[in-house]
Simulated scan of single mutants.
Amino acid sequence: MAQLLCKECGKYKPEKEVQLSICDDCFKYGAPRKTQQSAALQPAAPTVSVDADHIILTTSIDIPNRSIERVVSIVAAEAALGMNVFRDIANNWRDFVGGRSNSAQKSLKEARTACLDELRREASALGADAVIAVDLDYNELTTGGAGILFVAATGTAVKLAPLVPDP
Score class of each variant (00 low, 15 high):
residue 22 I to S: 01
residue 22 I to F: 00
residue 23 C to K: 02
residue 24 D to I: 03
residue 25 D to H: 07
residue 25 D to M: 04
residue 27 F to K: 08
residue 27 F to N: 02
residue 31 A to S: 15
residue 31 A to K: 12
residue 34 K to F: 06
residue 34 K to R: 14
residue 34 K to C: 03
residue 35 T to A: 05
residue 35 T to N: 06
residue 36 Q to L: 12
residue 37 Q to E: 12
residue 37 Q to P: 00
residue 38 S to W: 03
residue 39 A to D: 02
residue 39 A to V: 01
residue 40 A to I: 07
residue 41 L to W: 02
residue 41 L to N: 08
residue 43 P to R: 14
residue 44 A to K: 12
residue 47 T to K: 04
residue 47 T to L: 05
residue 48 V to C: 00
residue 49 S to E: 13
residue 49 S to A: 13
residue 50 V to S: 01
residue 51 D to W: 01
residue 51 D to F: 02
residue 52 A to L: 04
residue 52 A to G: 11
residue 53 D to Y: 02
residue 54 H to G: 13
residue 55 I to W: 05
residue 55 I to D: 02
residue 57 L to P: 13
residue 58 T to Q: 11
residue 60 S to W: 10
residue 60 S to K: 14
residue 62 D to F: 02
residue 63 I to M: 10
residue 64 P to Q: 12
residue 65 N to S: 14
residue 66 R to T: 03
residue 66 R to C: 07
residue 67 S to M: 03
residue 68 I to N: 08
residue 69 E to D: 11
residue 69 E to R: 13
residue 69 E to S: 08
residue 72 V to G: 02
residue 72 V to E: 15
residue 74 I to M: 06
residue 75 V to I: 12
residue 75 V to F: 07
residue 76 A to V: 04
residue 78 E to M: 07
residue 78 E to Y: 05
residue 78 E to T: 15
residue 80 A to C: 07
residue 82 G to Q: 09
residue 83 M to I: 15
residue 84 N to I: 07
residue 84 N to D: 15
residue 86 F to M: 13
residue 88 D to N: 13
residue 89 I to V: 11
residue 89 I to D: 07
residue 93 W to G: 07
residue 94 R to D: 10
residue 95 D to A: 09
residue 97 V to M: 12
residue 97 V to E: 06
residue 101 S to Q: 10
residue 101 S to T: 11
residue 102 N to C: 00
residue 103 S to A: 13
residue 103 S to C: 10
residue 105 Q to H: 05
residue 106 K to V: 02
residue 106 K to I: 03
residue 107 S to H: 06
residue 107 S to R: 00
residue 109 K to T: 14
residue 109 K to Y: 06
residue 110 E to Y: 11
residue 111 A to R: 01
residue 114 A to N: 12
residue 116 L to S: 04
residue 117 D to G: 09
residue 117 D to I: 06
residue 118 E to W: 01
residue 119 L to K: 04
residue 119 L to E: 01
residue 119 L to R: 02
residue 122 E to P: 00
residue 122 E to F: 00
residue 122 E to K: 06
residue 122 E to M: 04
residue 124 S to L: 01
residue 124 S to N: 03
residue 126 L to K: 15
residue 129 D to E: 04
residue 129 D to G: 15
residue 130 A to R: 05
residue 130 A to W: 03
residue 131 V to T: 12
residue 132 I to F: 09
